[in-house]
Amino acid sequence: MDLDGLDALLAKLDRMDREIEGDVGTIVKNNTIEMTQKVVKNAEFTQGYQTGYTKRNIETKIVSNLVGKTISKSEHSGYLEFGTRFMDAQPFIFPGFYNQKKQFLDDLNRLVK
């Protein structure tokens, strides 16, 4: 049995895989940046904004081509996000995440259609 063009097919599939991975990386990067912007905007409305410390300590970190993170380095972010027994929660990270999640999935779906 002889299969003509198998090497060309495998090469084309490999090339398509690299192109899609690059496109996914761009989607991850852009959506992580957009999410960070939303989280920073949400942080304006927390009690921690009085000094601006929480807002200034939110950053984007691209870990790899397929992993991006929005991080709050403020020591009291957890208290603001989840609340304490003395203070109601004032979430600013999760609302940004859930808002951006829909856009991220839409962007990925557009890529595979």
Rank of each mutant, 00 (worst) to 15 (best):
M1D: 10
D2G: 00
L3Q: 03
D4N: 11
G5Y: 00
G5S: 04
L6M: 11
L6R: 02
D7V: 06
A8N: 06
L9S: 01
A11K: 12
A11M: 04
K12I: 01
L13M: 14
L13C: 09
M16P: 01
M16R: 12
M16W: 10
D17A: 15
D17H: 10
D17R: 13
D17G: 10
R18D: 11
R18T: 09
E19G: 02
I20L: 13
I20F: 09
E21H: 07
E21I: 01
E21P: 00
E21L: 03
D23H: 13
D23A: 15
D23M: 13
V24D: 03
G25R: 09
T26W: 03
T26Y: 04
V28T: 08
V28N: 04
K29A: 15
K29D: 15
N30E: 14
N31A: 02
I33Q: 09
E34K: 15
E34H: 12
M35A: 11
M35C: 14
T36V: 09
T36F: 00
K38P: 02
K38M: 10
K38L: 15
V39H: 04
V39Q: 05
K41F: 08
N42I: 01
A43I: 02
F45V: 01
T46R: 05
T46Q: 00
Q47H: 14
Q47N: 14
G48R: 03
Y49G: 00
T51N: 09
G52R: 07
Y53S: 14
T54D: 05
T54W: 00
T54C: 08
R56H: 10
R56Q: 14
N57W: 04
I58G: 02
I58A: 07
E59K: 13
T60R: 11
T60G: 00
T60Y: 09
K61I: 13
I62D: 06
I62W: 03
V63C: 01
S64Y: 05
N65D: 13
L66M: 15
K69I: 10
T70C: 15
K73D: 04
K73R: 15
E75G: 01
E75L: 07
H76N: 07
H76F: 13
Y79Q: 09
L80Q: 06
L80M: 08
E81R: 02
F82A: 08
F82S: 06
F82R: 10
F82K: 09
R85K: 13
R85W: 09
R85Q: 12
M87Q: 14
D88M: 04
A89I: 08
A89V: 08
Q90K: 03
Q90E: 15
I93G: 00
I93N: 01
P95T: 06
P95M: 07
P95C: 09
F97N: 04
F97A: 07
Y98H: 14
Y98L: 09
N99F: 07
Q100C: 01
Q100F: 05
K101N: 06
F104R: 04
F104Y: 15
L105R: 11
D106M: 06
D106F: 04
D107T: 03
D107F: 00
D107V: 02
L108H: 04
N109F: 05
R110Q: 13
R110C: 00
R110G: 03
V112S: 04
V112C: 01
V112W: 06
K113G: 11
